[in-house]
């Protein structure tokens, strides 16, 4: 069982060593990774996803439960403890949604056939446009693809570590996603530009120039700010859904 994952420092874009000793994340913790575009956020979670051993462009090392992970963990999808949702909103695989999920479940060593149905049902709670099981994954919209891949990571990937790269970008119900994922006891990392997600996580990793600059722990004040922001975000979200549904906004709703 994965209790914790540790990142050991690599190098920044100029080849300088990163200025931290180790970052350890424990089961049940949520961490956000923030920083400007091109600051190395995606490279950091890719290192985690690949369980890098000095063999990625950053030179970082990853430990699981304080140990170097064995090769099986790194290379065998049925053993891999990590599920990552990338920014991709396009699938190339020429398969129906059902076939895609069936093969992925097989890759992950899951024999219960109901997993496919449950994954599609869960995905449909994240998106306004229903995903039909027989539709090809290549023609799903960006939001549908994202929703499907998140549901897939939660149920089929079923990994103790989940990496989410900018989930806010995809026209999905992010509150639903965040709430669901935070209650699972997993280690969850969000790469994000969204202030609500950044403030709701327990730790915040700040990136720039390809390296980790610092790690900030959540405090009381920020948590209260997050609650206020959450209400505001909820209102913005409600208005967004009304507009998407073709309704008009009244003065009262904006007040």
């Amino acid at each position: 069982m994965i209790q914790e994952i540790t990142i050991l420092p690599g190098r920044d874009r100029n080849g300088q060593a990163e200025k931290f000793d180790a970052i350890t994340m424990r089961a049940g913790e949520t961490i956000s990774i923030v920083g400007p575009t091109g600051s190395g956020k995606t490279a950091l979670i890719t290192d985690i996803e690949l369980l890098a051993q000095g063999d990625t462009s950053t030179g970082r090392y990853l430990l699981l439960n304080g140990q170097v992970p064995d090769e099986e963990m790194r290379y065998n999808p049925t053993k891999k403890p990590i599920a990552m949702i990338t920014q991709n909103t396009k699938c190339f695989t020429d398969l129906s949604t059902v076939d895609f999920l069936t093969i992925h479940a097989r890759a992950r060593g899951i024999s219960d056939p109901s997993i496919v149905r449950r994954t599609i049902d869960l995905a449909n709670t994240f998106t306004g446009e229903m995903i039909h099981p027989e539709v090809k994954v290549t023609v799903l919209s960006g939001g549908q693809t994202r929703s499907l891949l998140i549901a897939d990571a939660i149920l089929i990937g079923a990994a103790p570590i989940i990496l989410l790269d900018e989930i806010e970008n995809a026209g999905i119900f992010k509150q639903e996603v965040v709430r669901l994922i935070q209650s699972t006891g997993k280690i969850v990392l969000f790469v994000t530009h969204d202030p609500v997600i950044a403030l709701l996580t327990k730790h915040r990793i700040i990136m720039s120039n390809g390296s980790v600059q610092k790690v900030i722990a959540q405090n009381e004040l920020e948590l209260r700010a997050a609650q206020n922001l959450l209400e505001l975000d909820q209102r913005v979200g409600d208005i967004r859904e009304k507009l998407r549904a073709g309704h008009m906004i009244t003065h009262v709703q904006l007040a």
Binding site: E49, P77, A83, M84, I85, T86, N88, C91, F92, T93, L95, F100, I103, H104, R106, A107, R108, L149, D152, A153, I156, G157
Partner: peptide, 10 residues
């Protein structure tokens, strides 16, 4: 995506 890679590898 990781899911697609795993399907391809499978």
């Amino acid at each position: 995506s990781q899911a697609e890679r795993e399907v391809f590898i499978q």
